[in-house]
Protein backbone atom coordinates (compact mmCIF):
# COMPACT_ATOMS: atom_id res chain seq x y z
CA UNK A 1 0.00 0.00 0.00
CA UNK A 2 1.14 3.53 -0.68
CA UNK A 3 1.76 5.73 2.33
CA UNK A 4 1.33 9.38 1.44
CA UNK A 5 2.68 12.47 3.15
CA UNK A 6 -0.93 13.13 4.22
CA UNK A 7 -1.09 9.72 5.93
CA UNK A 8 2.11 10.48 7.79
CA UNK A 9 0.78 13.89 8.79
CA UNK A 10 -2.30 12.21 10.28
CA UNK A 11 -0.15 9.72 12.22
CA UNK A 12 2.12 12.54 13.42
CA UNK A 13 -0.94 14.37 14.69
CA UNK A 14 -2.05 11.27 16.61
CA UNK A 15 1.46 10.99 18.06
CA UNK A 16 1.58 14.74 18.88
CA UNK A 17 4.68 15.43 16.81
CA UNK A 18 5.00 18.58 14.74
CA UNK A 19 6.62 17.70 11.41
CA UNK A 20 7.75 20.08 8.67
CA UNK A 21 6.74 19.59 5.03
CA UNK A 22 10.27 18.43 4.34
CA UNK A 23 10.14 15.84 7.11
CA UNK A 24 6.79 14.54 5.87
CA UNK A 25 8.10 14.15 2.33
CA UNK A 26 11.22 12.41 3.61
CA UNK A 27 9.48 10.09 6.08
CA UNK A 28 6.65 8.81 3.89
CA UNK A 29 8.75 6.78 1.42
CA UNK A 30 11.04 5.54 4.21
CA UNK A 31 8.10 4.32 6.27
CA UNK A 32 6.58 2.68 3.22
CA UNK A 33 9.76 0.66 2.61
CA UNK A 34 9.78 -0.44 6.25
CA UNK A 35 6.10 -1.35 6.24
CA UNK A 36 6.53 -3.40 3.06
CA UNK A 37 9.47 -5.21 4.61
CA UNK A 38 7.55 -6.17 7.74
CA UNK A 39 4.25 -6.98 6.02
CA UNK A 40 5.22 -10.64 5.44
CA UNK A 41 4.75 -11.15 9.18
CA UNK A 42 0.98 -11.09 8.73
CA UNK A 43 1.22 -14.27 6.62
CA UNK A 44 3.27 -16.34 9.08
CA UNK A 45 0.91 -17.48 11.78
CA UNK A 46 -2.51 -19.02 11.45
CA UNK A 47 -5.52 -18.29 13.61
CA UNK A 48 -4.61 -21.17 15.94
CA UNK A 49 -1.40 -19.51 17.18
CA UNK A 50 -1.73 -17.67 20.48
CA UNK A 51 -0.11 -14.21 20.66
CA UNK A 52 2.89 -13.56 22.94
CA UNK A 53 3.00 -10.13 24.54
CA UNK A 54 5.77 -10.95 26.94
CA UNK A 55 8.66 -13.39 26.71
CA UNK A 56 8.59 -14.65 30.27
CA UNK A 57 5.51 -16.19 31.89
CA UNK A 58 3.93 -13.37 33.89
CA UNK A 59 1.97 -13.47 37.06
CA UNK A 60 0.51 -10.53 38.83
CA UNK A 61 2.84 -9.31 41.56
CA UNK A 62 1.32 -8.37 44.90
CA UNK A 63 2.75 -6.64 47.94
CA UNK A 64 1.45 -5.36 51.22
CA UNK A 65 -0.28 -2.02 50.91
CA UNK A 66 1.85 -0.08 53.35
CA UNK A 67 3.09 3.48 53.54
CA UNK A 68 6.67 3.85 52.37
CA UNK A 69 8.94 6.83 51.74
CA UNK A 70 8.53 8.40 48.32
CA UNK A 71 9.78 11.41 46.39
CA UNK A 72 9.14 14.74 48.06
CA UNK A 73 7.04 17.25 46.15
CA UNK A 74 10.14 19.39 45.88
CA UNK A 75 12.12 16.58 44.23
CA UNK A 76 9.25 15.73 41.90
CA UNK A 77 9.05 19.35 40.79
CA UNK A 78 12.79 19.86 40.53
CA UNK A 79 13.00 19.09 36.81
CA UNK A 80 9.74 20.71 35.77
CA UNK A 81 9.87 23.21 32.90
CA UNK A 82 7.62 25.52 34.94
CA UNK A 83 6.13 25.47 38.43
CA UNK A 84 3.76 27.63 40.40
CA UNK A 85 2.75 27.38 44.06
CA UNK A 86 4.44 23.98 44.47
CA UNK A 87 2.69 22.53 41.45
CA UNK A 88 3.43 21.87 37.79
CA UNK A 89 2.44 24.86 35.69
CA UNK A 90 1.10 23.83 32.29
CA UNK A 91 -0.03 25.82 29.25
CA UNK A 92 -3.77 26.43 28.85
CA UNK A 93 -5.77 23.24 28.50
CA UNK A 94 -8.87 24.79 26.92
CA UNK A 95 -8.86 26.55 23.59
CA UNK A 96 -10.62 29.67 25.03
CA UNK A 97 -9.09 31.80 27.74
CA UNK A 98 -11.01 31.27 30.97
Amino acid sequence: MALTAQDVAKLAELARIELSEGELAHLAPQLEVIIEAVAAVSQVAGADVAPTSHAVPMENVFREDEIRPSLSAQAALSAAPATEDGRFRVPRILEEEA
Binding site: A45, V49, P51, A55
Partner: peptide, 9 residues
Protein backbone atom coordinates in the same frame (compact mmCIF):
# COMPACT_ATOMS: atom_id res chain seq x y z
CA UNK B 1 -1.54 -8.93 16.36
CA UNK B 2 0.36 -10.86 13.69
CA UNK B 3 3.72 -9.87 15.11
CA UNK B 4 2.73 -11.19 18.53
CA UNK B 5 1.84 -14.51 16.92
CA UNK B 6 5.14 -14.58 15.06
CA UNK B 7 6.75 -14.01 18.44
CA UNK B 8 5.07 -17.17 19.70
CA UNK B 9 6.52 -19.12 16.77
Amino acid sequence: GSAQKARTL
